[in-house]
């Protein structure tokens, strides 16, 4: 019973914070609300028995990516006064379009059959032991390729960030 309430509470917080990301005027506030959204999503991961992913999510997203966002916002010196805004007309049409997308998606998922509960849920698949085994046996090649991807991204970021390219 308490898990259901916890799910509802976390979902409510996630949706509220996500809305605040979009609607808040100050970009720094948007980043901070996004960090809170990521924490609620990490809570959902814990509820779903994915403890390792919850830890990685907090470290990578809330720890690394959002700090990068915050750094860039502070480097660019963005604040409420310099914030560009769309016209009210465009904002209204954007809201209507997103609402229609929500209606279409919810409507198409409404009739989806739910997975039959087999009562044989394995609570250990989210632990690092099982994930590591699967990562280093079935997914060894993608794992190594992703390291090359990170290297390429690092080189690209440094190259783009350089003052002038001769």
């Amino acid at each position: 019973m308490i898990t259901t309430y916890l799910f509802g509470f976390l979902s409510f917080l996630a949706i509220m914070f996500a809305l605040m990301v979009v609607l808040s005027k100050n970009p720094v506030h948007s980043v901070l609300y996004l960090v809170l959204t990521f924490f609620t999503i990490a809570g959902h991961y814990v509820l779903l028995n994915a403890q390792f992913l919850a830890a990685v999510h907090v470290i990578v997203y809330a720890g690394a990516i959002m700090v990068l966002f915050l750094f860039v916002i502070m480097l660019l010196n963005l604040n409420e006064e310099t914030e560009p805004h769309k016209s009210v007309w465009l904002k209204a049409s954007a809201t209507v379009a997103a609402g229609l997308l929500l209606v279409v998606l919810v409507g198409s998922l409404k009739g989806a059959e739910t997975i039959v509960a087999t009562n044989k849920f394995d609570p250990n698949i989210g632990l690092i032991e099982n994930l590591g085994k699967s990562l280093f046996t079935d997914f060894l090649l993608p794992f190594e390729v992703s390291s090359i991807l990170l290297l390429v991204a690092m080189v690209g970021a440094v190259l783009l960030g350089k003052k002038s390219i001769k």
């Binding site: 963005l78 997103a98 609402g99």
Partner: peptide, 19 residues
């Protein structure tokens, strides 16, 4: 679905590239 739609809303709603 709701979180995804809020993301779409953000892309349509704002002009700041970082948001």
């Amino acid at each position: 679905t709701i979180l995804f739609t809020i993301g779409v809303l953000g892309v349509l709603f704002r002009r700041n590239a970082i948001i």
